[in-house]
């Protein structure tokens, strides 16, 4: 049956309902709920690393580079290349790599987008 304007009731209901969107960048930041296990910016615990280079070998985006330092071979993470698949965190034998809940990965300087 053709009834024009069936949506009017829904539209009126929506007038008195809570807003579906979040005023995100400036206000209501407390309403941004991220679940446990969210894959955000990589966090790296340098003291746990044993230099096995598995993370470097699995990374599909080539966001990890291996450099020599005083302790041996250690990875550097370029966040601007990261695709947040968390495969490096999964293969890490000592759990030195973890995914944080930081999702705002914007920086003015390139060095801020590198995790050492």
């Amino acid at each position: 049956m053709k009834v024009p304007g069936r949506l009017v009731a829904e539209a009126l209901k929506s007038l008195f309902r809570r807003r579906a969107t979040i005023l995100y960048p400036y206000r209501e930041l407390d309403k941004v709920h991220l679940p446990e296990g969210f894959r955000g910016r990589i966090e790296f615990d340098r003291s746990k690393c044993i230099g096995c280079q598995l993370c470097f070998r699995v990374c599909p985006a080539k966001a990890i580079e291996i450099v020599d330092d005083e302790k041996g071979k250690r990875p550097i993470f370029y966040i601007y290349r990261c695709i947040y698949c968390a495969q490096c965190a999964e293969v890490c034998p000592t759990k030195a790599i973890s995914m944080s809940k930081i999702f705002e990965n914007i920086a003015l300087r390139k060095e801020d987008m590198v995790v050492r």
């Binding site: 991220l34 679940p35 296990g37 969210f38 894959r39 695709i83 947040y84 698949c85 968390a86 495969q87 995914m99």
Partner: peptide
């Protein structure tokens, strides 16, 4: 999807 897989779109 985000709750189960860890990301909204590319679920991995």
């Amino acid at each position: 999807l985000e709750l189960i897989t860890g990301n909204r779109v590319t679920t991995a």
